[in-house]
Amino acid sequence: MTRAAIIVCWVMAIGLALFLIAPLLVIAAASFSPTPVFDLPLTGASTRWYGKIGRLDGFWPSLLLSLEIALFSTAISLVCGTLAAIAIARGKLPGANVFATALVSPLMMPGLVLGIALLQGFRAVGFTAPWATLLVAHLVITLPYVARTMISGLARFDFTLIEAARTLGCTYPGSVLRVMVPALAPSFLIAGIFSFLASFDNYPVSIFLADVRTKTLPIRMLQYIEEAPDPTLAALSTLILAGTVILLFVSDRVVGLHRMAGTSD
């Protein structure tokens, strides 16, 4: 590459990094605002907004609901998606490629359209309990993340290793547990984190299935922002961000971020 091109590339990369990180830093800074308006740059610092998060109207039930739905849907999707990925990777399934595409296709579909489709579908069969409809709907949100990650993870796994372990005297469950599980653990962790975050952050599907008493945290947050945005929301956002940072940091320690980017080195 020519020198000028390299300089342009670096300027873009650094600009992009600053541009992407800016809103996150602003939210964190605004959460320590001493006044109810977002006075930036800060003229002082106050942590009182953090104390007010718990008093936001309907906060605790919404947080609990979002955590429950995200945990349960991720757990179910991890089991179903991994089983499907194994069948696809083994190559004994007729039409495996078509099914693999179908499994990840919800990722490319507009969330809002899925939301109204599910609302119509659940109504048509008389399935209207909000908690249960949210859980079932979030399976479609989380399953594609698990399927995509596990299919690419299993594509690199050599199934003859299981046979080798069995030849060497390992039982079948034992060889799966001691050979396959450790090899797939990084993919499993990445799949779990991204599917949890996809569910926890989902708004476009949840909004059509929630009712007055059953609102997920993103629905509540959008409502707070539209009604009365104050630094309490920035404090709540900062805590959610901090949780995300911890999740990513742990996964980077365990598997390395560059693996999530899809590069192999």
Partner: peptide
């Protein structure tokens, strides 16, 4: 890479809210 993944993992509502402040 961290500056790519952190915003990717961060809530869309949180980021949009940050832009309303910015």
């Amino acid at each position: 890479l961290a500056t790519l993944f952190l915003p990717l993992a961060a809530s869309v509502i949180v980021k949009a809210f940050a832009w309303t402040i910015l």
